[in-house]
């Protein structure tokens, strides 16, 4: 449900950047979404179209770049792939994992005019 407010956050960034970098229209937005971030890409796409209505990004394309989750396994003392937050280490089966990356969500770049 909070994908809606995340999209409002995206729109605020677009508005700020439009002033700062001098553009009037956003044609494409690239978002980086980590597999471990608390964002559902489908809900994000749905909210995006609704929130961008009547804004500088109306009809803009949303491109989502998935970033894989990486965690530090305390038992193996190395980075391993983490598909979910509560997944076990794929090598040793331990749950003593600390997320290293893949939990972020960022606006990467825009195509504007």
């Amino acid at each position: 449900m909070h994908e809606m407010s995340l999209c409002e956050g995206v729109l605020q960034v677009l508005q700020t950047e439009a002033k700062r970098q001098g553009f009037n229209k956003v044609k494409t937005v690239w978002l980086e979404i980590g597999d471990l971030s608390s964002v559902e890409p489908d809900a994000m796409r749905f909210s995006f179209d609704v929130v961008m209505q009547n804004s500088l990004a109306q009809d803009a394309l949303l491109e989502i770049i998935h970033l894989p989750g990486v965690a530090w396994c305390m038992q193996c003392a190395k980075n391993v792939a983490a598909k979910k937050r509560y997944a076990a280490c794929p090598d040793c089966g331990s749950y003593q994992l600390q997320i290293v990356s893949g939990d972020a969500m960022r606006i990467k770049e825009l195509e504007v005019e």
């Binding site: 969500m105 990467k108 770049e109």
Partner: peptide, 17 residues
């Protein structure tokens, strides 16, 4: 002629919060 260009943002979506 297209005025399209790319703009690097690199900002966290939750940046404002």
């Amino acid at each position: 002629m297209s005025q399209s260009r790319m703009v690097q943002i690199e900002q966290d979506i939750l940046g404002k919060n």
